[in-house]
Amino acid sequence: MQWTADEVHAEVVRLLEPFNPQSVDLQPETDLATDLGMDSVAAMNMVMEVEDRFEIDIPISLLPDVKTLQDLVDAVLAELSKKPAQ
Rank of each mutant, 00 (worst) to 15 (best):
M1L: 12
M1I: 12
W3L: 08
A5D: 15
D6K: 07
V8D: 12
V8N: 07
V8L: 10
A10E: 15
E11M: 15
V13Y: 05
V13D: 07
R14C: 09
L15W: 05
L16S: 03
L16C: 00
P18Q: 07
P18H: 02
P18I: 03
F19K: 01
F19A: 06
N20Y: 06
P21L: 06
P21E: 05
P21F: 04
Q22I: 01
Q22S: 04
L26S: 01
Q27I: 09
P28S: 02
P28L: 05
E29V: 12
L32M: 03
A33Y: 08
T34M: 03
T34Q: 10
D35T: 10
D35P: 07
L36G: 01
L36F: 02
G37M: 04
G37F: 11
G37T: 13
M38E: 05
D39V: 01
D39S: 01
S40D: 08
S40T: 01
V41K: 04
V41I: 15
A42W: 00
A42I: 06
A43G: 11
M44H: 01
N45E: 14
M46K: 01
V47S: 09
E49A: 14
E49I: 00
V50K: 03
E51D: 10
E51V: 13
D52M: 09
D52Q: 13
R53K: 14
I56K: 09
D57E: 13
I58N: 09
P59I: 05
P59M: 07
L62E: 15
P64R: 10
D65W: 06
V66W: 10
K67D: 06
K67R: 15
V73P: 05
V73S: 00
V76Q: 03
L77S: 11
A78P: 02
E79Y: 02
L80Q: 11
L80G: 10
S81F: 00
S81V: 05
K82R: 15
K83T: 14
P84L: 11
P84T: 13
